[in-house]
Design a protein around this nucleic acid. Structure first.
Lengths: 199, 199, 199, 199
DNA sequence: GATGAATGAGAATTCATTCAT
DNA sequence: GATGAATGAATTCTCATTCAT
């Protein structure tokens, strides 16, 4: 099953065709170097058609991120079983994240990083989305503490560590090496995060 | 002691004046939205003068990053005492990183993140620099393992966790809150990383 | 009785609906700023339908002016009684003109002024129409002279004065003030034109 | 002595070169059909240079009109002798107007007519300028009445007649016929306006 | 060396017109 | 006939770069 297909496959809907093309081009080049005409061509439509569906290049960008992020978040909801142990949940999260990246190459860099400045509004929205994701992670940690699975650590700090680790690995490992065994990497990560570095 | 001064203080040297202004403007706006004229004005020189010292806007960007990165790396060399314990060294690294950020606000986002794409060459160079930093961290971990301070973990994975955590906190904590007690945050972080999450 | 109704009331005829909408929109915004889609919407038809009845935006404009002008000229023919005195005829003309304007607000500016250039052909046609109107006025003056009502003035010059006065008052007085007593104004005008300024 | 030269001859001043070219192009084609590049070429400068001196096409238009109007108004101030009889003054005004038109062909149509809509602000400004000109004419009439030269007519109505006549003749006579004896025409006009049409 | 006026390639956006349904 | 989604030519404006002073 290919998520990219799931994500943007409805050929009937030109809006989605354009968003899919936008994701590809924006991801490869960033906001400013990406040209509207290029996106239009990649979407197989005329330049003017982009403006039938979106009022500006900025709106295309914003809508594309929004769509992607919804998809990303839903992706986790479907896979996450909160009755399992925290360690198992985190394994699922990292694994799902890696899987998502494999199928939506590079797209991730557009979501969780403090970005190339487009405009204040988009920036603020991205920061808020990031915060929401952090809160979700912190909540899982908190549950683990309450269940007695984890030490009573600062949940916000722990969430930051988790997210930072995921982002750091995103570019470096998951994307760089085509056929990396990410399950093993994730086990390494969780080993360190759960048992600690110290002897 | 103000690092910004140290970093770009030679008023005689127009080249440095321009790099200092470039750091300020590029940091605030990103590569594309930053205008050469703006940088020139901020540097107190004429627009044409920028082209006396650099062949293009891209070169200004690249040189600025390079200069900044050298400074950043040297900053650590001066402060890092490899005879101390790994935990102490990591505390120094994180603390120095936070301190650097405080004094060179936002500059960091230009250094260690997979960037807004300028051009292939700059991109590749940044990836290499990032790798070098990771190697430095991995080396410290390795030393810790050899000395018996740390468990025999995968050093590359540990380095990624450390760097990811630093980056994640950079935007979120160090920069957002003006007068945050980062020493305490760093202790939280190291507590988790050394003792682990698990009970 | 509402002339606007008379002018464009045949709801069955889409062509007239479009011309009516065109008159409204072109009048309010001028040729270039008026959008075909806007006219179509105002006419209650689809954009494509406009092109079923007219070959281009320019043709819509030309046809609209032509229709309007025919209506305008016929308007006078119906009201003008050439057996009356010239002064009475001119009063009727000015009064009818004012009345027409009240009911077809702003439309007039589209007719008698040297226009925003659409194309050579339309321009030339408008000049010819204007000339025809001048000739009509000159003819009335000529009749007055022959009847001994008027001094033997240059009829072309007199016609220009009359038309210029009407145009000048069109924008200034008739349209600007909603409920102006134009009968009184016209009497002032004719007083000056017939008795002269001089003591 | 050539007024066009006086009007826009300072080759040193690129701003004026651009305004001169703008007057020529806008006059020939109207606001919308005139292209910025065309104006630039006519001014002998690059497209970008226009934007060094003006912030937008609209500003070029506005500035051009403003400059022209100042010149036009000053043109009269220099030629008008208020101690002379009103009839002589009006002869001077019409004659000067005709002369100005001869030397600044077509430019006039840009000044005193209710225009092709550019934007609200420019429109309002033009209306105000027109009003000012009308007030000046009314003032001359008023003086004539006070001096006993003229009948006690409504000065505003008389001013409208005068201005309407001038505008009407502008397009029709002064500009159309290259070598028309406008002095004779003006005498015809004043004859009618002063002695009246009636026997 | 230093400057900033001049430039024109390039980009976002608009909108008259077409044409498949 | 009627429609409006699709289109791309055309236009305004930006800005990195050049070069005469």
């Amino acid at each position: 099953m290919d998520e990219k297909k799931l994500l943007f496959n409805n050929k009937q809907d030109k809006r989605l065709q354009i968003l899919a093309a936008a994701a590809k081009i924006f991801t490869a080049k960033g906001f400013h170097p990406a040209k509207v005409e290029e996106i239009a061509t990649a979407a197989g439509v005329g330049k003017g058609t982009v403006y039938e569906y979106f009022s500006s290049k900025t709106e295309v960008f914003r809508e594309m991120l929004s769509y992607l992020l919804e998809f990303y978040k839903q992706y986790f909801e479907e896979r996450l079983d909160r009755s399992k142990s925290v360690r198992e949940q985190l394994f699922t999260i990292m694994s799902t994240h890696a899987h998502f990246l494999k199928n939506n190459k590079d797209l991730f860099s557009l979501i969780l990083e403090p970005h190339q400045p487009i405009d204040e509004e988009t920036q603020a929205w991205l920061v808020a989305e990031r915060r929401e994701i952090l809160d979700g992670l912190a909540q899982i940690i908190q549950t683990g503490i309450e269940r007695g699975e984890l030490k009573p650590v600062n949940t916000f700090v722990a969430a930051q560590i988790l997210l930072g680790t995921m982002i750091s690995f995103s570019g470096e490992v998951f994307l760089a090496k085509k056929d990396w065994d990410y399950q093993e990497i994730i086990n390494h990560i969780l080993e360190i995060l759960f048992q600690g570095l110290e002897c």
